Amino acid sequence: MNTPAIAAIQPCLWFDDQAREAMEYYVSVFPDSRIDEVIEYPDESLDEHFRGMSGNVLNGRFTLRGVNFVCLDGGPIFTFNEAVSFVVTCADQAEIDRYWAALSHVPGSEQCGWCKDRFGVSWQIIPATMGALLARPAQIQAMMAMTKIVIAELENA
């Protein structure tokens, strides 16, 4: 088996019990992505700490567009919030629209290109030219009023 290279620093996502579902979903959303490895919790009869976790993801490794991630099912102790988000740089409006449609599931959390997926993970879906599109104060004001970024509106602001 050819083992992929592992980045020296990689994000780890803590799910309640949806790590496998999240990995499968994310690799379906992002091209050139894959699940690299899934290690399941052992049989719960081996240790009381594993009670109810047998078959869940103890350690999952997956790659999204060349970025290595780790994930696990750890129960409801911790949840995601907007303090950490992942930036998806897009080539054009069609790519923004595609990622937005796939990842945005919490309308109340949408602003300035930020959205939250069905697992609670925050994403920033932005054009690769974002810096140039925010060169004038009017463009910044226009962006602040947006949920999903619309390139044409920023260009015309």
Results as ranks from 00 to 15, higher is better:
54 S>I: 02
64 L>M: 02
5 A>G: 11
118 R>Y: 02
36 D>E: 11
27 V>N: 07
146 M>K: 06
135 A>H: 10
51 R>F: 05
55 G>M: 02
117 D>T: 00
121 V>R: 01
150 V>I: 15
94 A>L: 03
12 C>S: 14
19 A>K: 10
95 E>N: 04
150 V>N: 07
126 I>N: 09
36 D>S: 12
11 P>F: 04
117 D>Q: 00
149 I>A: 01
109 S>F: 15
83 A>I: 11
85 S>L: 00
94 A>P: 10
112 C>A: 14
48 E>F: 07
137 P>M: 07
117 D>V: 00
60 G>N: 06
1 M>N: 13
71 C>I: 04
58 L>M: 15
112 C>N: 11
25 Y>R: 04
74 G>N: 09
105 H>K: 14
61 R>L: 15
82 E>K: 15
71 C>V: 04
8 A>W: 11
78 F>C: 12
89 T>P: 02
122 S>K: 11
47 D>K: 04
52 G>W: 06
153 E>G: 05
157 A>S: 12
60 G>K: 11
115 C>P: 09
107 P>Q: 09
72 L>S: 10
105 H>C: 11
42 P>A: 00
76 P>H: 09
70 V>K: 11
60 G>A: 06
5 A>M: 14
131 G>D: 09
58 L>H: 14
104 S>P: 02
13 L>M: 02
37 E>F: 12
111 Q>I: 10
86 F>I: 05
13 L>H: 06
114 W>A: 08
38 V>A: 01
118 R>V: 03
97 D>H: 01
134 L>Y: 01
9 I>T: 15
97 D>Q: 07
4 P>T: 15
10 Q>G: 12
78 F>P: 06
142 A>L: 07
71 C>T: 03
153 E>K: 08
156 N>P: 13
155 E>V: 12
72 L>Q: 13
65 R>K: 15
60 G>I: 12
32 D>T: 13
58 L>W: 02
133 L>K: 03
70 V>P: 06
111 Q>L: 13
135 A>L: 14
61 R>K: 15
114 W>H: 10
18 Q>M: 14
24 E>L: 09
121 V>M: 08
94 A>F: 05
66 G>I: 03
119 F>C: 02
75 G>C: 01
26 Y>V: 00
148 K>M: 09
59 N>C: 15
101 A>L: 07
16 D>Q: 15
114 W>F: 11
100 W>N: 04
37 E>H: 11
81 N>Q: 02
116 K>D: 09
58 L>T: 08
141 Q>F: 09
92 D>H: 08
143 M>V: 01
27 V>I: 15
132 A>L: 09
108 G>A: 15
107 P>L: 08
89 T>C: 10
6 I>F: 13
110 E>W: 00
137 P>Y: 06
